[in-house]
Design a binder for these strands. Sequence first.
DNA 1: GCCTAGCATTGACTTTTATCAATTTATAGG
DNA 2: CCTATAAATTGATAAAAGTCAATGCTAGGC
Lengths: 232, 232
Amino acid sequence: MSASEHEDIRRIELFSQMADDNFKSLMRGAYVQNFPAQIELITEGEPSDFLHIVISGSVDLFSAWNGRDTSMATVRPISTFILAATIKDAPYLMSARTLEKSRIALIPSQDVRAIFDIDSNFARTIVTELAQCYRSAIKAQKDLKLRTSLERLANYLLRHQRHAGGGAAFELDFEKRRLASVLGMTPENLSRAFKGLQPYGVIVRGTRITINNQADLEHFAKPNPLIDNFST
Amino acid sequence: MSASEHEDIRRIELFSQMADDNFKSLMRGAYVQNFPAQIELITEGEPSDFLHIVISGSVDLFSAWNGRDTSMATVRPISTFILAATIKDAPYLMSARTLEKSRIALIPSQDVRAIFDIDSNFARTIVTELAQCYRSAIKAQKDLKLRTSLERLANYLLRHQRHAGGGAAFELDFEKRRLASVLGMTPENLSRAFKGLQPYGVIVRGTRITINNQADLEHFAKPNPLIDNFST
DNA sequence: GCCTAGCATTGACTTTTATCAATTTATAGG
DNA sequence: CCTATAAATTGATAAAAGTCAATGCTAGGC
């Protein structure tokens, strides 16, 4: 792992507050690997041997049951995944695969747990992180249970627009088939949902979205910070 | 609060590992109140001033958006709720109401955060608890995204049967309308879903459920520990 | 620049789920 | 024990979402 990568990881919220020695100790046991696209990094049900950190590229967290599967989240640099399983020493609940060529750091779970026990600042940050993860999961559950797929798409677009800087036009950051899966619908249904948002001024050309009537779309979507604001 | 209540709370996983002084200090700031049924204890969006502990009775966590609402979970004695909001000092994501006459302990959130900072055993348990909560939320999300309502009901029955001791006959522990909401469907649809499970040997008489053909139902439900096992 | 594989879209249709209205059944007070 | 009230069920219908099949589009490999 390069020194600049160390720096990058150190700057992640999760590792920013811990003692220097402990961080170094964590990094000593860690190793970094480059993976091509579409590689399954972990499989749900397996023991959680490593905490993963995406350094570059992107990773899809997904889950399967009875022949169906669904995308749960996308992890982008620089952030960790599978923290809860690592901490609990419990099996992964989701599988992970690279979406593109990616560089991933792996920290042995037992090291994370050991440092957790001796570094209270680290423990503090882990708590904050887990609380955040939990709240995001609750928001996702509310999104699924309280909204139709059309409403979920509308709110997704507004969130993503904001994330992309707030302009009327922006690019989707992943394939539509995966967006459909993330939103809990089929690709066909997503296609029709985009059509269904045309009356509210949404224009789609490939991955480029233009929101022509912000007020109309917001009136339909009724975004709510208790569902759509990922930072609180 | 009575001495025996102190004992009961002390025995909760969350408080079992902390230093005695710190526990006493937490309890000093706490107070206990009796509430009648159907009282809204907290409202989503409000600041999280207290960590709540259900001592007796039961509490429904629910959420509303755009005129709809949905039950997210039921809290039964003795356990806490709204831990993540307390820790993050963030607004509640869910509202809570008593389902019956209930006795609730309230611990000021700032006290919890203060003790958290000085008691590493307490911090350790909070992390475990939050990781658990997060994983439960992920399981709920998988349940919603990967299964039809009939499958969710079938798996719910199997989980509940297990929880009730494993016998072929058992009682539902809450009203059907709320079960419907928890499972993400309408009461009408739940009624029909019960009918739809008849071919698999499920018999419903009021709140009493009998599973006549365990193997058949399990074959249909395909329960999976990564969705249905709440303890890992 | 062309070809090809995979993604996206569209149409026709089915299944699943929700909604509305009408009964029936259960339940808690008086 | 009766009655008022809410819950549960049922039927009819509508809306939402999924499936299947065909076609259009597009980006990467040669």
